[in-house]
Design a protein around this nucleic acid. Sequence first.
RNA 1: GCGGCUGUAGUCUAGCCUGGUAGGACAGUACCCUGCCACGGUACAGACCCGGGUUCAAAUCCCGGCAGCCGCACCA
Length: 491
Amino acid sequence: MSYDDVLKVALRRGIFFKTSEIYPNSPAGFWEYGPYGHTIKQKFIEALRKKLKLLNCVEIDGSIILPREVFEASSHLKSFVDPVVECTQCKQAVRANTIIEEKTGERIPEKDVDKINVLLEKLKLRCPRCGGKLSKAFLFNLMLKVDVGMKEHECYLRPETCQAIFLDFKRVFKAMRGKLPFAIFQVGKSFRNEISPRQSLVRMREFTQAEIEVFFNPKKEDELEFDWLKSFRLNLYVNGRSIETTPEMAVENGIISSKLVAFHLAFIHEFYESIGVPHENLRIRKLSEDEKAFYAKEAWDLEVLTSLGYLELVACNHRGDYDLGAHSKHSGIDLKVLDGGERVLPNVFELSIGVDRSILAILDLTYRKTKDRIFFSLSPKLAPIQVCVFPLVAKDGLPEKAQEVCKLLSDFEYVYEEKGSIGKRYYRYDEIGVPFAITIDYRSIKDDTITIRDRDTSQQVRINLNELREVLEKLLRGELKFEDVKGERVS
RNA sequence: GCGGCUGUAGUCUAGCCUGGUAGGACAGUACCCUGCCACGGUACAGACCCGGGUUCAAAUCCCGGCAGCCGCACCA
């Protein structure tokens, strides 16, 4: 299982690890990124930002703490809950509808506390563990509550980043002189009081989301050009069947409901491929009626096949006018905007990206273990360091020559290391996924050549020092393949 | 949250049954060596998940907690 191996390397190299680990009783579901992990995560976000330039998209940075009213409107207060009863003796908490259903075999609506309390009274239920008296049922909300100010404004840590986007939509749209379709992006922390956090970065209580909310005129959902994604191959998964098709064909065949949805599904699919996730490991799965959220008209999950099975990385929801409608109604503010001559309440298509899970999935997929080394075959776009500079040995003027090379590389992300055997240094940086290493040897002093080593193959090619910057730049951008670099091969 | 299994340096592990100085390997640090792939030399440093109990004495036995894995449940 590469997942276990990834966890080990992550711990050993400080890529990510548990929060407050020096206090052993701290709660689960909180994780830290160390220096390399932080850089990989930031590069993932940066790659996404660059890709977003191809959409009509702006970015905001909203509050993490939001007032009760927001979640009344969004219905998180009512719906993001489990009904729970607590034993007055042993303090055991049990899901209320579960124990009633076990007794009666009847399905109870989860969120109807009054009905649950009537039934609890009538059935005279006792604690299933110790037989003690049970409290009245109450709703356990998965949102984390915070009291703000002396007068205790009731606030919550956001359980998803998108609410700020809906709240800010009208101002941002006007301020940016927006035109539909108009997308707003936000990346940041969200919080959920998960009952059982599991599998490190897969389910956390504090996690990073990157959400793109695309606002559009529902009458114009099919007035859109596929443009650069016209011939993109989408891996769809519908009712247990895999379908590989273009976004255009998927709409024509009625698999995807509109061009706008198809375009954005292709967009996110292409993004993951562009940062090195293999095409064949990706699929976009259509959610069935009972899987999707109540507000969703249509829902797809982008999933990636890892050693843990298919992991859901991006929730793609057609949210209709649910969000702007709900906030209009609760706030009394009209959130319609002008589209051409028409005043419309925009509909929303959402891409909700789990950043931490994505990082874990990418590490899992790029983990390589061979007979004598371990490495991450990370895309240069995500690697925490771009290139290493190593003098073959730390004597005879090689370190001084290597320093000259470092000066040449001042606008690259490089590390210099001269201690230990050369093999040991290669190994150490392979293990965190650094794609290239430059070695300065005795010939370098004589003829101003150096070798570039490729992480994945451990092959080397000798080139002139004056070509280095250009070759490296192209290798990092993916414009040049290592096997096509012109120069003397070193085996 | 429930049930089963588990918890010793950064990692892997010996020791636990039968209580009495926690041992090793790899990784790390320093110095040396080193003309291309960690596994040459010397030295150093580093651990019994937490709390309580039993005991003269607990890594070891008992209880509780926490965490991890698997299964169930949950999952906007």
